[in-house]
Every structure is written in C-alpha cells, then in structure tokens.
Design a protein around this nucleic acid. Sequence first.
DNA 1: GATGAATGAGCATTCATTCAT
DNA 2: AATGAATGAATGCTCATTCAT
Lengths: 203, 203, 203, 203
Amino acid sequence: MVQVPREVDKHARIIEAATKIFSQKGYFHSKIADVAEAAGVAEGTIYLYFKSKEDLLISIFEHSMDKFIHEGKKELSKFSSPEEKFKRFVHFHLSLVQENQNLSHVIQLELRQSSKFMKEYKADKFFDYLRVVEEIIEEGQKSGVFSLKINPKIIRRAIFGAVDEMALEWVLMKEKKYTLEKCADQLCEMFLNGMKANPQGSA
Amino acid sequence: MVQVPREVDKHARIIEAATKIFSQKGYFHSKIADVAEAAGVAEGTIYLYFKSKEDLLISIFEHSMDKFIHEGKKELSKFSSPEEKFKRFVHFHLSLVQENQNLSHVIQLELRQSSKFMKEYKADKFFDYLRVVEEIIEEGQKSGVFSLKINPKIIRRAIFGAVDEMALEWVLMKEKKYTLEKCADQLCEMFLNGMKANPQGSA
Amino acid sequence: MVQVPREVDKHARIIEAATKIFSQKGYFHSKIADVAEAAGVAEGTIYLYFKSKEDLLISIFEHSMDKFIHEGKKELSKFSSPEEKFKRFVHFHLSLVQENQNLSHVIQLELRQSSKFMKEYKADKFFDYLRVVEEIIEEGQKSGVFSLKINPKIIRRAIFGAVDEMALEWVLMKEKKYTLEKCADQLCEMFLNGMKANPQGSA
Amino acid sequence: MVQVPREVDKHARIIEAATKIFSQKGYFHSKIADVAEAAGVAEGTIYLYFKSKEDLLISIFEHSMDKFIHEGKKELSKFSSPEEKFKRFVHFHLSLVQENQNLSHVIQLELRQSSKFMKEYKADKFFDYLRVVEEIIEEGQKSGVFSLKINPKIIRRAIFGAVDEMALEWVLMKEKKYTLEKCADQLCEMFLNGMKANPQGSA
DNA sequence: GATGAATGAGCATTCATTCAT
DNA sequence: AATGAATGAATGCTCATTCAT
C-alpha cells in the first residue's frame, strides 16, 4: 500500500511544461496545444487547472516565488552578519537562476507581457522579494557597517536590477564567458564597498 | 495659426505613433491599424516604410539608439575625470528615460518580445551603449581612481542593470515618490564608492 | 419536517431540471453540467438515462405530451357539444401553458432547434395533439353546428397556431396586461363564430 | 463609363448566403466558413459587414422586414374595405412566405435562437408588422363591419399566429398537399366570419 | 448504478499582410 | 506613393461525451 505517485500531479506537470515551452518560444508564440503536448495532457485539461493562458503564465511565477522566498529566508537566517547575508543573497539569487534557467527566462521576459501581472500581481510577491534585500541593508545600517546615506528603498531596487541583469545576460549568453560565481563575487565586492560606512564619516 | 509641420516625414511619424501605441498597449496587443490611425496614414502605407510589424518595433530601437549614443558621447566628452563622466552618464541615462518615457517603455519591455531582436540585433546597438560605460571604467582604472579588481565587462552590465531598473521602476511608478535626480545621486554615491581604488590596499 | 421525496426517480429529476435550465438559458446555451447540477446528479449520470443532449430535449417533449393528450381527452370527454368541447380545449391548452411555463417555453422555442425533432419526431405526438382539435371540428360539422366549408386539416393548424401564439406571447410578456382567461374568451368567440354554420347560407 | 455593378454588393450577398445556409442547417449548426463560401467571400470579410454571427442573423430579419412592411402597406393601400384589406394581408403574408421560403424559415425558427433578438429587437420591427393587422381590425370596427367585442390587441396576435403557423407548416411540408392560396382562403373565411359584427347585436 | 476528471474536436473571431485601384 | 478593402491562416477556449474507478 505504498503511496506511489503513479503520475505526477497534473498541475505541476503543466506548470513545468509551460515553463519550458514559454521560455523556448516566448509566451505569445507558444500555443496551448504545445504546452498540452509537452505536459502529456489534452488541451482541455489545462483549463481544468488554469483559468486561461495568462493565468497559467502568472501561476508559473507564483508557484516558484513562494518557494524561493521561503528558501531564501531560510538560507539567510544561517548567517548573522549583514555583509555575509548580502553575499549569500547575491549568490543565492544567481544560483537559482543558474539552476532554473527556463523559469528565470519566463519570469524575466515573458511574465512582463501579461498586462494583468504588470498591473496587479507584481506588487505582492515581487515586493516580498525586494523586502529581503531592504531588510539586509537596514540591518547593516543599524549595526553600523552600512552607510546611513544609503536609501534602502532606492538601493534595494538598484541591487535587484544589477543582479537580475547579470543573471539575464548570463542566461542569454550562448557561450558562457565566465561563471555566475565570478559575477557574484564582483557584484558583492562592488556593492559592499559601495554601501560601507566611512569609519570617521565623510563630507 | 500655430505652425504645425504640415507633412512631417512619414517614416518618423509612424515611428513616433508606434512608440506611443506600443508603450500604451504592449506590442502584441497593438494593432497595425492602431498605429496607422495614430500616425494619420493608411495601414498599407506602413508597409511601404517597414517590412513588418516586428521590423517596426526594432526600428524604434535603432532609430533612437543612434541618436542617444551620439548625444551621450558628446555630453560625456565635456568632462575629463572618470568619476565626473560616470555621474554624467547616470544622470544622462535617467534624464533620457524621464524625457522619453514611452520610448523607454518600448525598449525595456516590448522590444524583448521580438525574438529576432533578442537573438540577432541586441548585440549591435545595445553593446555600443554598454561600451560607453565600460570605457569610463577602464579610463578610471588607468588613472588609478577605480580599483583594478573591477572587471569592466561584468560591472558595466551590473551598472546598466541597476540604472535601468531604477528607470523602469520610476517609469512604472504612478505616484512618483522621489525624483530621478535623487535616484541618480544614490546610484552614483554607491557605485563610485564601490569601484573606488583603495589607496593602501583593502581589508 | 415537510415530506420531501427523498429520492425521486432520477429520470424525472433530470427532465425537470433540463426543462428549467433549457427554458432559462435556451437549449444551445445550456450546458449538460448546468442540468446535472440542477438535477443534483453527476454529469455522467445523465448519459445513463439519455443518449445525448438532443435526446434529453426531445424526451422533455415526449414525457409531457403523453400526459397532456391523455388529460386533454379525459377533460374533453366530459362535454358533449362540440362548441363546449372547443372552448374547453382552448382553455385547457392555455391553462397548461400557464401552469407549465418553462415546459411551454421549451416546447415552443427550444425544441425546434433539434433538427432530429423537426424532421422525425414532430409528426407523432404533435399530430396526436392536433388530431384532438380536428376531431372536435369534424364532430361539429357532422352535427351541423360548424360550417362544412371549413377544412378541418387546415383549420386545426390555424387554431393551434393562434392559441399557441397567444400562449407564447403571454409567457414572454413581462407585465401581464390581461389574463389568459380573457385571451381564451376572445379566441373562442372568434373561432366559434368563424366556424359557425350559416343557417340559411352565407352572403 | 456605364456603372455596371461588377459584383453584387457584398453586404447583400452575405445576407443572401446566410439566409440559405441558416435555413438549411440551422443557425447553430451553420459555420461562418459555410456562409463565407456560399457568399464567395473570405471569412474575415463577413466581419467587415457584420459585428458577429448573431448580428448577421438579426440583420437578415431587419433587412427583410423593412422591405416587407413597406411593400405590405403599399399593397394594402390599394384597397379601402377592411375586409378586402384583411384578405390581402393574409394572401400577401402567405405569398411572401412562399416566395421566400429560406427567409421565412430563418425568421420563424432560427431567429428565436438569438437571445439578443428575443430580448431587444423583436419588439420594434415585429410590432410594426402586428400593428398593420391591428389597424385593419380597428378600421373595420369603426366602419361597423367588425364586432366591437373583438380586442384588436389580442386578436391581432391570434391572427398572426394562425397565419404564421400555416406558413410554417406549409414550408416544412415536403409534399405540398394544398396550395397556400387554399390556406389563405380558409383563413380569411374563418377570421372574417369570426370578427363580423352581428347585424342586430348578440348576447 | 454513479461519478467527475479527462478528452479533443470544433469554431468564432482577429489581424498582419497584400494588392487592385 | 498611398490607400483600405479583402484575405485567410491561426488559436484560445468550450463542452458534449467517455470511461476508469
């Protein structure tokens, strides 16, 4: 009576297939029929699990973000120094991208084609993610290692932009010229220096 | 009796109309008929100037990048210190975005929906733009103000990502919570500190 | 503690539910799922009792016509004068419509959307119904109260059309401007006069 | 330079084709592709002239009713006696049906499948038509040939129902057992007798 | 018998592109 | 060059029907 998942949960299989197809062909050029075939289900079945093609796209994002934010926070909680946390954050983000290239592609490029997402959803889960960065910065400011001149609400987005653009470039790069590890090191070096508090204060 | 340019170059009028329409509705949701109406020409006329809808999208990018790279270089040539050049670059980019919000929207969001652009074109004009940043960094490294640890090819992209993400956030922000000037200052402060060469070595 | 029939015959329950749903939404806009829900059964169950959606539609008709023809004949048998029978027929038909508005709606409007019904079935049960009228007319002609000029096969249909159209109008009328009784009286007055045999010949 | 309609007006051609297809297959079973092919145009062309399939169905009705009401009034105006007008009305209606069987089929059977029509449109043009009958009755009542007991608003509908049902039966009849002329005569005989004013009045 | 998840054929509608004028 | 009516390929979604449980 062992519970063997005879066939993987259809919901998950469709999400997975859609991620692959969308990242390969682009959202608008992907057909529901393509996704259905890749998931090994009938077209109609997709509509038993998702309201529409757009809903499917947005679900890909939501499905993963919950998991990543949870894992990210868990990962960061292992470290106490804000600098160390920051390093872990950057490495974590880039390693996620490396391990989930299709998913990254969909979130970074395809998701923005959903006006529904751009208008309504983005806020929620995405800002949860940004808030993680913000909290690291604020923690560093309180403990005196990051400069108080830094506006966490502005810089958090700059950091996200930098890290994400690196990830995007890397994902799109056909012949990888350097490892994501190398990128992470460069980014940390620059951002940590850039946010560092001046020992005696400066003009 | 305001002097309206009676018959502005149709090519430019179509580019202008397409930029507006694409940024408002998104590339895939924009119809050639919409663009034609906004440009005050017949649908068929668009095909006298552009091979296809995708060609029109890419043309928007090429049309503007030439101009911006040219203007940018001219602007930067007024300054000699790499730090000053860097500041001008950041301000210049952000002010361009501010003054051409529709265009920015199209380049940042819609353009990526063209697989042709993502695969073929991006390199050319976009890398010209990135090279401007790269050159500033290299110049700073040569003159000893920027750390040699910085890999210009990596960091140029991080900087672009950060600046562009700030611009994107600002464009999408409905109630502007801060000026782009403020953003520019924060970014410069952080990046210049981050890239600064350590006089006596680092920790 | 009202005595609700705990498990009414499913066949009847589905017919009843379908009648309601079809009359509300129209046959083509009604989904089997709607009917199943209204009947409190699973979708698949419907196919245990009916071959197809169309079969269900036609069954509604057959189910009721048997009953109505039987009741109608019984009702009419109480009267011996053809004129009285005619009046009873008109009142009976209109009162049936009044008491079974959903059913009337389905028979008058939705049933005609079944090509199968229009081509094959209509004859049987519907002509049984028409024959009732025909027989009244013929009886009246034999007994000399109805004119021999009347062609019972033609006029029976005209009478049916008139009575049914009145019923339809009345069913669709939102604010009832007059009672069906009033209609019945008007119809009888006119038809009986119209069919009356002229004692000394006609003008 | 003679203006020869090189190809008949597409709008009319589509209406004509749709009438034929709808009457043959029924509205819901007809595909836009069928209509397009019958009209000798591309599918998309239909949408240049009609908003939707339903709009096309309703247009068939409107297109013809204007013409028929106009022609009908013109025809009736040739006669002055209400009785004669009534006869002409019945003959006119039945002859229209005979000459436009496909159209009649669509108006009598298919049109009712449009909820839009049933809810919104029917009133307008259809009541124009009914009003013609009503006016004949009222005129007859004023001139004393029709009984004042007749309620024109009720009987007009009964007459319409009778005439229309006859027409429907005739249209659907495969082997015509009698001419529509014969029907018309029977109907007139009965209705005129039925509405006739009693010389000295009756109980 | 009863269920309801799964199926997949079917179709109205859109819209980039063409081409006769 | 300019037009815009006409085209027709393309596809998201629905829903009657089936069938493994």
